[in-house]
């Protein structure tokens, strides 16, 4: 392997285990010098990529593994109870905190007005959801996810819907769909013991309320990708 071939590999794969590459590095002074220079740059790249890693996340992972085991045994009653606790807690939180936006105030009131969640044991078939969505000028374009409860309700600027989704880990996640309340971009609502997020949809917005360890990313993506206005 000549110097130029060596340099070519060095520029893309300085960690190459190719015998010719290693021989050139060890036996050719010019190659060795080029290698030393490249490794100096590599050390900078490696240090740049090695961002600090949050260690507490490991506990969440272990917790979720344990929870996953339990989930196989957990019945729907627990899900209903957990959801109700969540709703009451979130409602109380909202009540005790000054909300800056009209939308957040509305969510507060909506959760306080109806803290009890009714939930069917089974997932509601999507063809049963379609007419409800259609009545609020919304089409479901794709897989919305595992919906166990849906009820039309008044929202800030017109009719919307309250829903309870089950995520992949059988955790009930509350969603308030507000087709007439558009927002420019998503924002988080920070709260003790709960996390809240209002996401922008093609038509209006949706508030997603869950406990901190509960996964909502999948539901958020489903809402964004599937709820469309009926043209």
């Amino acid at each position: 392997m000549n110097y130029f071939e060596f340099k070519q590999i060095l520029a893309s794969d300085p960690y190459s285990k190719d015998p010719d590459f290693l021989a050139a590095k060890n036996n050719d002074t010019r190659c060795y010098r080029a290698y030393q220079e490249a490794m100096k740059r590599e050390r900078t790249i490696k240090a740049a990529l090695e961002i600090p890693v949050p260690q507490h996340n490991i506990q969440h992972i272990k917790f979720r593994q344990a929870q996953d085991k339990q989930n196989t045994l957990r019945n729907q009653f627990f899900a209903v109870a957990a959801s109700a606790v969540l709703m009451i807690g979130a409602g109380l939180f909202f009540l005790n905190n000054n909300q800056s936006s009209e939308l957040e105030r509305f969510i507060n009131e909506a959760l306080m007005m109806e803290p009890t969640v009714y939930m069917s044991d089974e997932e509601i078939p999507h063809d049963e959801l379609q007419p409800l969505f259609a009545s609020i000028n919304t089409a479901v374009d794709g897989d919305l996810g595992d919906v166990h409860f849906m009820k039309l309700c008044p929202t800030l600027n017109g009719k919307g819907a309250r829903m309870v989704f089950m995520n992949d880990f059988n955790q009930p996640i509350t969603v308030l769909y507000m087709p007439n309340s558009p927002i420019e971009s998503a924002f988080d609502m920070q709260m003790d013991g709960f996390k809240g997020k209002i996401v922008a949809l093609e038509q209006g917005s949706a508030a997603i309320i869950a406990r901190p360890h509960e996964s909502t990313a999948q539901i958020e993506t489903a809402l964004i990708n599937t709820l469309r206005p009926i043209q």
Binding site: L49, P54, N57, H60, R64, D68, S215
Partner: peptide, 21 residues
Amino acid sequence: WLGKDEQMAKDLVQESYLRAW
């Protein structure tokens, strides 16, 4: 470095480990 977002990275790692589990 895939998502360039800390929260997203945490979620991704959690989800991946759970799927692997």
